[in-house]
Protein backbone atom coordinates (compact mmCIF):
# COMPACT_ATOMS: atom_id res chain seq x y z
CA UNK A 1 0.00 0.00 0.00
CA UNK A 2 2.85 2.32 0.85
CA UNK A 3 4.45 1.59 -2.51
CA UNK A 4 1.38 2.72 -4.42
CA UNK A 5 1.14 6.08 -2.73
CA UNK A 6 4.84 6.64 -2.59
CA UNK A 7 4.68 8.81 -5.61
CA UNK A 8 3.11 12.18 -5.91
CA UNK A 9 2.75 13.39 -9.44
CA UNK A 10 5.52 11.08 -10.44
CA UNK A 11 7.94 12.30 -7.78
CA UNK A 12 9.40 9.60 -5.56
CA UNK A 13 9.93 10.03 -1.86
CA UNK A 14 13.68 9.63 -1.40
CA UNK A 15 15.01 6.61 0.44
CA UNK A 16 17.42 8.80 2.36
CA UNK A 17 16.69 12.13 4.00
CA UNK A 18 18.20 15.09 2.19
CA UNK A 19 19.96 17.82 4.15
CA UNK A 20 21.73 17.80 7.50
CA UNK A 21 20.08 15.48 10.00
CA UNK A 22 22.92 16.04 12.44
CA UNK A 23 23.74 19.17 14.40
CA UNK A 24 26.80 20.04 16.46
CA UNK A 25 25.10 20.27 19.79
CA UNK A 26 22.06 18.01 19.91
CA UNK A 27 19.64 17.98 22.80
CA UNK A 28 17.74 15.05 21.41
CA UNK A 29 18.67 12.72 18.64
CA UNK A 30 16.56 10.11 16.91
CA UNK A 31 18.06 7.29 14.89
CA UNK A 32 16.21 4.87 12.59
CA UNK A 33 12.86 5.39 14.24
CA UNK A 34 9.93 3.30 12.95
CA UNK A 35 6.43 3.57 14.30
CA UNK A 36 3.63 1.10 13.61
CA UNK A 37 -0.05 1.42 14.38
CA UNK A 38 -0.91 -2.24 14.31
CA UNK A 39 -0.03 -3.33 10.79
CA UNK A 40 0.23 0.15 9.39
CA UNK A 41 3.59 1.86 9.35
CA UNK A 42 3.26 5.51 10.29
CA UNK A 43 6.95 6.46 10.54
CA UNK A 44 9.53 4.97 8.22
CA UNK A 45 13.12 5.00 9.37
CA UNK A 46 13.53 8.59 10.47
CA UNK A 47 16.78 9.95 11.89
CA UNK A 48 16.97 13.52 13.13
CA UNK A 49 18.84 15.65 15.65
CA UNK A 50 17.15 18.38 17.63
CA UNK A 51 19.62 21.14 18.48
CA UNK A 52 20.04 22.71 21.87
CA UNK A 53 18.14 26.00 22.29
CA UNK A 54 16.79 25.88 18.80
CA UNK A 55 13.33 25.98 17.36
CA UNK A 56 12.73 23.23 14.85
CA UNK A 57 9.48 23.01 12.96
CA UNK A 58 7.94 19.93 11.38
CA UNK A 59 5.90 20.59 8.27
CA UNK A 60 4.16 18.37 5.79
CA UNK A 61 0.73 17.38 4.48
CA UNK A 62 -1.86 15.79 6.78
CA UNK A 63 -1.10 12.21 7.73
CA UNK A 64 2.62 12.53 6.97
CA UNK A 65 3.61 11.40 10.46
CA UNK A 66 4.92 14.67 11.87
CA UNK A 67 2.61 14.61 14.91
CA UNK A 68 3.30 10.91 15.45
CA UNK A 69 7.04 11.58 15.42
CA UNK A 70 6.58 14.51 17.80
CA UNK A 71 4.66 12.32 20.23
CA UNK A 72 7.49 9.79 20.16
CA UNK A 73 9.81 12.38 21.63
CA UNK A 74 8.09 12.29 25.04
CA UNK A 75 6.52 8.85 24.66
CA UNK A 76 2.98 10.16 24.51
CA UNK A 77 2.41 7.35 22.01
CA UNK A 78 2.65 4.93 24.94
CA UNK A 79 -0.99 5.67 25.69
CA UNK A 80 -2.04 4.08 22.39
CA UNK A 81 -2.12 0.32 22.84
CA UNK A 82 -1.52 -0.67 19.23
CA UNK A 83 1.34 1.76 18.73
CA UNK A 84 4.81 0.20 18.50
CA UNK A 85 7.99 2.27 18.31
CA UNK A 86 11.42 0.95 17.42
CA UNK A 87 14.71 2.64 16.85
CA UNK A 88 16.50 4.90 19.24
CA UNK A 89 15.68 8.34 20.60
CA UNK A 90 18.20 9.87 22.96
CA UNK A 91 17.98 12.84 25.22
CA UNK A 92 21.42 13.88 26.49
CA UNK A 93 22.78 10.49 25.39
CA UNK A 94 20.15 8.50 27.22
CA UNK A 95 17.72 6.34 25.26
CA UNK A 96 14.21 7.38 26.25
CA UNK A 97 12.78 4.00 25.24
CA UNK A 98 15.17 2.26 27.62
CA UNK A 99 13.00 0.22 30.05
CA UNK A 100 15.00 1.73 32.92
CA UNK A 101 13.82 5.24 32.01
CA UNK A 102 10.90 6.53 34.01
CA UNK A 103 8.40 7.97 31.57
CA UNK A 104 7.18 10.39 34.25
CA UNK A 105 10.58 12.01 34.65
CA UNK A 106 11.01 12.04 30.88
CA UNK A 107 7.80 14.04 30.48
CA UNK A 108 8.98 16.43 33.15
CA UNK A 109 12.02 17.07 30.94
CA UNK A 110 10.13 17.08 27.65
CA UNK A 111 6.94 19.10 28.09
CA UNK A 112 4.09 19.28 25.64
CA UNK A 113 1.54 21.77 24.36
CA UNK A 114 -1.39 20.37 22.42
CA UNK A 115 -3.35 21.39 19.36
CA UNK A 116 -6.51 22.25 21.25
CA UNK A 117 -5.98 24.31 24.41
CA UNK A 118 -6.68 21.84 27.21
CA UNK A 119 -6.50 23.56 30.59
CA UNK A 120 -7.59 21.46 33.55
CA UNK A 121 -11.08 22.28 34.81
CA UNK A 122 -9.46 23.92 37.82
CA UNK A 123 -8.36 27.42 38.76
CA UNK A 124 -5.64 29.23 36.82
CA UNK A 125 -3.33 28.87 39.81
CA UNK A 126 -3.94 25.14 40.12
CA UNK A 127 -3.39 24.66 36.41
CA UNK A 128 0.15 25.99 36.70
CA UNK A 129 0.82 24.57 40.15
CA UNK A 130 -0.21 21.03 39.24
CA UNK A 131 3.06 20.03 37.57
CA UNK A 132 5.37 21.48 40.26
CA UNK A 133 3.19 19.86 42.93
CA UNK A 134 3.30 16.33 41.57
CA UNK A 135 7.05 16.57 40.92
CA UNK A 136 7.71 18.16 44.31
CA UNK A 137 9.47 21.15 42.72
CA UNK A 138 8.35 23.71 45.29
CA UNK A 139 9.68 23.41 48.82
CA UNK A 140 7.16 25.83 50.25
CA UNK A 141 3.94 27.62 49.48
CA UNK A 142 5.89 30.82 48.80
CA UNK A 143 8.10 29.03 46.33
CA UNK A 144 5.06 27.57 44.59
CA UNK A 145 3.57 31.06 44.31
CA UNK A 146 6.83 32.22 42.76
CA UNK A 147 6.86 29.38 40.25
CA UNK A 148 3.28 30.17 39.25
CA UNK A 149 3.99 33.86 38.90
CA UNK A 150 7.19 33.46 36.92
CA UNK A 151 5.65 30.83 34.64
CA UNK A 152 2.70 33.09 33.88
CA UNK A 153 5.05 35.99 33.35
CA UNK A 154 7.18 34.02 30.92
CA UNK A 155 4.03 33.04 29.06
CA UNK A 156 3.01 36.72 28.94
CA UNK A 157 -0.21 36.00 30.77
CA UNK A 158 0.56 37.39 34.24
CA UNK A 159 -0.74 40.90 33.65
CA UNK A 160 -4.01 39.54 32.25
CA UNK A 161 -4.77 37.06 35.00
CA UNK A 162 -2.95 38.16 38.15
CA UNK A 163 -6.19 39.38 39.75
CA UNK A 164 -8.13 36.23 39.07
CA UNK A 165 -5.83 33.32 39.74
CA UNK A 166 -8.64 31.55 41.54
CA UNK A 167 -10.92 31.73 38.52
CA UNK A 168 -11.33 28.69 36.27
CA UNK A 169 -8.71 28.29 33.57
CA UNK A 170 -11.44 27.21 31.18
CA UNK A 171 -13.02 30.67 31.46
CA UNK A 172 -10.15 32.31 29.55
CA UNK A 173 -10.26 33.03 25.83
CA UNK A 174 -8.79 30.47 23.43
CA UNK A 175 -5.50 32.31 23.00
CA UNK A 176 -5.16 32.88 26.73
CA UNK A 177 -5.92 29.22 27.36
CA UNK A 178 -3.16 28.18 25.00
CA UNK A 179 -0.69 30.50 26.71
CA UNK A 180 -1.88 29.07 30.02
CA UNK A 181 -1.02 25.62 28.68
CA UNK A 182 2.42 26.88 27.66
CA UNK A 183 2.87 28.35 31.14
CA UNK A 184 1.81 25.01 32.59
CA UNK A 185 4.43 23.27 30.47
CA UNK A 186 7.26 25.59 31.48
CA UNK A 187 6.28 25.51 35.17
CA UNK A 188 8.07 22.17 35.54
CA UNK A 189 11.22 23.66 33.93
CA UNK A 190 11.53 21.24 31.02
CA UNK A 191 14.49 21.14 28.65
CA UNK A 192 12.40 20.58 25.54
CA UNK A 193 8.88 21.79 24.75
CA UNK A 194 6.91 19.94 22.10
CA UNK A 195 4.14 21.90 20.44
CA UNK A 196 1.57 20.12 18.30
CA UNK A 197 0.00 22.74 16.04
CA UNK A 198 -0.41 25.11 18.99
CA UNK A 199 -2.01 27.86 16.94
CA UNK A 200 -4.41 25.93 14.74
CA UNK A 201 -7.38 26.74 17.00
CA UNK A 202 -6.44 30.40 17.49
CA UNK A 203 -7.24 33.61 15.67
CA UNK A 204 -4.41 35.61 14.02
CA UNK A 205 -3.95 37.98 16.96
CA UNK A 206 -3.69 35.17 19.50
CA UNK A 207 -1.42 33.34 17.07
CA UNK A 208 0.88 36.35 16.89
CA UNK A 209 1.10 36.42 20.68
CA UNK A 210 1.97 32.74 20.89
CA UNK A 211 4.59 33.13 18.18
CA UNK A 212 6.09 36.05 20.03
CA UNK A 213 6.17 33.88 23.12
CA UNK A 214 7.93 31.06 21.27
CA UNK A 215 10.44 33.60 20.07
CA UNK A 216 11.22 34.59 23.66
CA UNK A 217 11.27 31.05 24.97
CA UNK A 218 13.83 29.81 22.43
CA UNK A 219 16.68 31.26 24.48
CA UNK A 220 16.05 28.92 27.35
CA UNK A 221 14.25 25.98 25.85
CA UNK A 222 14.55 23.69 22.91
CA UNK A 223 11.28 23.86 21.03
CA UNK A 224 9.85 21.41 18.54
CA UNK A 225 6.75 22.68 16.78
CA UNK A 226 4.43 20.98 14.35
CA UNK A 227 2.64 23.45 12.13
CA UNK A 228 0.48 23.59 9.06
CA UNK A 229 1.36 27.19 8.43
CA UNK A 230 4.44 27.57 6.27
CA UNK A 231 4.65 31.25 7.16
CA UNK A 232 4.71 30.33 10.82
CA UNK A 233 7.48 27.81 10.28
CA UNK A 234 9.43 30.39 8.32
CA UNK A 235 8.92 33.08 10.97
CA UNK A 236 9.76 31.21 14.12
CA UNK A 237 12.03 28.28 13.44
CA UNK A 238 15.77 27.87 13.02
CA UNK A 239 15.49 24.53 11.29
CA UNK A 240 12.66 23.00 9.30
CA UNK A 241 11.93 19.35 8.62
CA UNK A 242 9.62 18.30 5.82
CA UNK A 243 7.74 15.03 6.30
CA UNK A 244 5.96 13.07 3.62
CA UNK A 245 4.09 9.76 3.93
CA UNK A 246 5.89 8.75 7.09
CA UNK A 247 9.30 9.71 5.79
CA UNK A 248 11.51 12.64 6.55
CA UNK A 249 12.14 14.03 3.08
CA UNK A 250 14.37 16.90 3.88
CA UNK A 251 15.72 18.87 6.81
CA UNK A 252 17.85 21.97 6.97
CA UNK A 253 18.09 25.59 8.00
CA UNK A 254 14.70 27.19 7.66
CA UNK A 255 15.99 29.81 5.29
CA UNK A 256 17.55 27.25 3.01
CA UNK A 257 14.51 24.95 3.06
CA UNK A 258 12.18 27.77 2.10
CA UNK A 259 14.38 29.50 -0.43
CA UNK A 260 16.27 26.64 -1.92
CA UNK A 261 14.61 23.30 -1.18
CA UNK A 262 16.64 20.25 -2.10
CA UNK A 263 13.70 18.05 -3.09
CA UNK A 264 10.90 18.62 -5.52
CA UNK A 265 8.30 17.44 -3.00
CA UNK A 266 9.40 20.11 -0.55
CA UNK A 267 9.38 22.64 -3.32
CA UNK A 268 5.83 21.66 -4.32
CA UNK A 269 4.60 21.74 -0.75
CA UNK A 270 6.02 25.10 0.23
CA UNK A 271 4.84 26.69 -2.95
CA UNK A 272 1.37 25.38 -2.24
CA UNK A 273 1.06 22.98 -5.11
CA UNK A 274 -0.44 20.34 -2.79
CA UNK A 275 -1.02 19.67 0.88
Amino acid sequence: MVQNTNQVEGRAVPEKTLGEIQVDNPRMSARNVNVFYGEKQAIDNISLDIGMSQVISFIGPSGCGKSTFLRCLNRMNDTIDICKVDGEIKIDHQNIYDPAIDVVSLRARVGMVFQKPNPFPKSIFDNIAYGPRIHGLAASKVELDQIVESSLQRAGLWEEVKDRLDQPGTGLSGGQQQRLCIARAIAVSPEVILMDEPCSALDPIATAKVEELIHELREQYTIVIVTHSMQQAARISDRTAYFHLGKLVEVGDTKQVFTNPRHELTQDYITGRFG
Partner: peptide
Amino acid sequence: VPPSIRDAALGVGASKMQTIMHH
Protein backbone atom coordinates in the same frame (compact mmCIF):
# COMPACT_ATOMS: atom_id res chain seq x y z
CA VAL B 1 -13.94 12.36 30.35
CA PRO B 2 -12.33 14.14 27.38
CA PRO B 3 -9.03 12.57 26.31
CA SER B 4 -7.50 16.03 26.08
CA ILE B 5 -7.56 16.21 29.89
CA ARG B 6 -5.64 12.94 30.16
CA ASP B 7 -3.16 14.20 27.57
CA ALA B 8 -2.71 17.41 29.53
CA ALA B 9 -2.00 15.56 32.76
CA LEU B 10 0.32 13.03 31.14
CA GLY B 11 1.99 15.87 29.27
CA VAL B 12 3.13 17.61 32.46
CA GLY B 13 4.45 14.31 33.76
CA ALA B 14 1.63 12.92 35.86
CA SER B 15 1.75 9.16 36.21
CA LYS B 16 -1.16 7.07 35.06
CA MET B 17 -2.39 6.72 38.62
CA GLN B 18 -2.13 10.47 39.25
CA THR B 19 -3.97 11.21 36.03
CA ILE B 20 -6.78 8.94 37.15
CA MET B 21 -6.96 10.13 40.74
CA HIS B 22 -6.49 13.87 40.12
CA HIS B 23 -8.36 14.36 36.87
